Amino acid sequence: MVAQARQPLYRMKADFFKTLGHPARIRVLELLSEREHAVSEMLPEVGIEPANLSQQLAILRRAGLVTARREGLSVTYALTSPRVAELLGVARAILTGVVAGQAELLEDDVAEPAGRARR
């Protein structure tokens, strides 16, 4: 991690967002935003093979986004910070705005009379 501390902040941010750049990892973080989950609880929700889920959880753990706690035979995961859930909420708000804007553009295209020059 010492070498990473010497990186410019924008590179560290890029690496952080690369970590988030997988649908299964986002889904895991969404689930953990609600509450702690055992791996067995996440499997049907994430919809990937157990080995793949373990790999994705290991990536999130190395990035410092989740923690793991063994409880008997199962492992329970939790977010390391509630700010991760906040980040997912901000992303949802941004995407909702983008989708609404796209829908508005589509409605404008449909409402425009045929044969009229586009703007």
Rank of each mutant, 00 (worst) to 15 (best):
E34R: 10
L32R: 00
L31R: 11
E34I: 09
S81H: 03
P44R: 03
A24R: 02
R6S: 09
K18R: 13
D108Y: 14
I59L: 07
V2E: 14
Q4C: 05
Y77V: 01
Q102G: 08
R83S: 13
G47Y: 03
P23Y: 08
E71F: 02
T19D: 04
A103C: 08
Q102D: 09
S81E: 03
P82Q: 12
Q4Y: 07
M1R: 13
P82M: 06
V39E: 13
S74M: 07
S74Q: 13
A78Y: 03
E71K: 10
P113Q: 02
G47N: 04
V98Q: 05
M42W: 02
E45N: 06
S81G: 08
Q55P: 00
M12N: 09
A103T: 14
E107T: 14
K18D: 13
G64R: 02
Y77K: 05
V110E: 15
R119N: 08
I26T: 09
L106V: 06
A93M: 14
G64P: 03
L32E: 07
E104N: 05
R70S: 10
D15S: 09
I26S: 04
V84M: 14
D108P: 08
D109W: 10
L9M: 09
S33W: 00
G47L: 06
G21C: 04
E34W: 09
L95M: 15
A5N: 01
E112A: 15
L88N: 01
L60P: 00
L9W: 04
Q4M: 09
R11N: 10
L95A: 07
V75A: 02
A100R: 13
E71P: 04
R6T: 04
V90T: 13
A103Y: 01
P44T: 07
R83P: 00
E71D: 10
P44Q: 08
D108W: 14
P82E: 10
V39R: 11
T96Y: 03
V110N: 05
A78T: 15
V46L: 08
E49D: 10
L88H: 05
L43T: 07
L9G: 03
T76M: 06
G97Y: 05
R25L: 01
E86L: 15
G72K: 00
A103L: 08
L73G: 12
Y10K: 08
R62K: 03
A103S: 11
K13A: 14
D109T: 15
A3D: 14
T80E: 05
P23T: 03
G89A: 11
T19F: 02
E45C: 11
Y10A: 12
L79F: 06
G115S: 02
N52Y: 08
R62D: 03
R61T: 05
A78S: 14
V2K: 12
G115K: 09
G97P: 00
R69D: 12
Q102N: 12
R69C: 13
T80S: 06
P44N: 04
V2R: 12
A24Y: 05
K13T: 07
E104I: 00
T80V: 12
V99C: 08
K13H: 11
H22A: 03
L73T: 06
L105T: 11
G64V: 00
A93R: 15
V46I: 06
Q56F: 02
T67M: 11
A100Y: 05
F17M: 11
Q55V: 04
V28G: 00
A111E: 15
V75K: 01
T76Q: 11
G21T: 00
K18M: 13
A93T: 07
Y10C: 05
P8A: 11
Y77C: 04
V2I: 11
S33Y: 06
L95N: 10
Q102T: 08
V66W: 01
